[in-house]
């Protein structure tokens, strides 16, 4: 009973997605189905039908709520690539919007994999949802494996510090982790910097309740004026930068890697400032 209901919901949502994209998706997405087995999942648990259904509400938000404008999508190279973006907004809407853009606007469509926090697999429903839409726990082995398979991987080097940014910290990039640079060097993967303008204002948080976060086992517990991290309908502008190629030793000292990471950070910061200058208002 429940299963059939679930199947109907998936089919219904998928039709909604198709209506919004304007046309059947199966042919366009055929290439993404390659690695699926007879149970409709790839080895990592990604299920294209589920993903196309799951993005329906996100696609609606993309078109009508955040009214996303995308710049430079064509700069994302074919095959393995690391997409590195700023992170903000309490809820990972920035990841969802980048994912929707690449799945529905790019030709050929790309199903991005983002590296999620290690506590996600311990959350009921969220863990299953994330796996079915292709999001993977951020371990270096997972990243290596996916890059070797020619996937596009979205990384937020700011991590939890980024998404939990307070209002006063908006558009100030937090410290970048070095892990993505080690992987880029090791696997000779191009890095595409991404700047998301608009997400940083979507859920202004005033304080971060550290003790509550620790109590619940969350990475952070930011408090917004409404108490809930509901995103406001800010207008999103997503800028894709030119791919950056790095050479060097993956096991180099942190200081050396940090120099390279700063190049990526600088590129994102420049696009962020440019984007903020160009826009007329936070909401339109």
């Amino acid at each position: 009973m429940l299963e059939r209901l679930g199947d109907d919901v998936v089919r219904g949502l998928k039709r909604w997605t198709e209506a919004m994209v304007g046309g059947p998706l199966d042919e366009k997405m055929a290439a993404l189905r390659r690695s699926e087995n007879e149970y409709g999942v790839d080895p990592f648990g990604f299920n294209l039908d589920y993903a196309l259904a799951a993005i329906a509400p996100l696609l609606w938000l993309y078109k009508h709520y955040h009214r996303v404008e995308v710049f430079g999508l064509e700069k994302v190279p074919k095959g393995q690539v690391l997409l590195v973006s700023n992170h903000s907004g309490q809820l990972p809407m920035d990841a969802a919007m980048i994912g929707v853009a690449l799945l529905t606007q790019a030709t050929p469509p790309r199903a991005i994999r983002s590296m999620v926090e290690k506590w996600v697999p311990s959350l009921p429903y969220v863990s299953t949802f994330m796996a079915r839409v292709g999001q993977i726990v951020g371990t270096p082995e997972n990243c290596r494996r996916l890059l070797a398979a020619g996937e596009a991987i979205l990384v937020f080097p700011e991590g939890a510090k980024g998404i939990a940014k307070l209002w006063s910290q908006r558009y100030q990039l937090q410290d970048f982790g070095l892990g993505f640079m080690r992987l880029a060097l090791e696997t000779k993967t191009p890095v595409v910097p991404i700047a998301v303008v608009g997400a940083e204002e979507q859920a202004p948080a005033l304080v971060n309740l550290g003790p509550v976060a620790r109590l619940l086992g969350f990475p952070a517990f930011p408090l917004t004026p409404t108490g809930l991290p509901v995103p406001l309908p800010t207008k999103y502008r997503i800028y894709f930068g030119d791919p950056l190629f790095f050479t060097g030793r993956a096991d180099d000292e942190d200081a050396e890697l940090d120099k390279k990471v700063r190049v990526v950070k600088g590129a994102i910061q420049a696009m962020l400032e440019n984007g903020r200058r160009e826009r007329k208002h936070v909401f339109w």
Binding site: K118, V137, E141, R145
Partner: peptide, 9 residues
């Protein structure tokens, strides 16, 4: 474990 990579070598 929730920390496991998807494929352990």
């Amino acid at each position: 474990s929730p920390d496991n990579s998807n494929f352990l070598s």
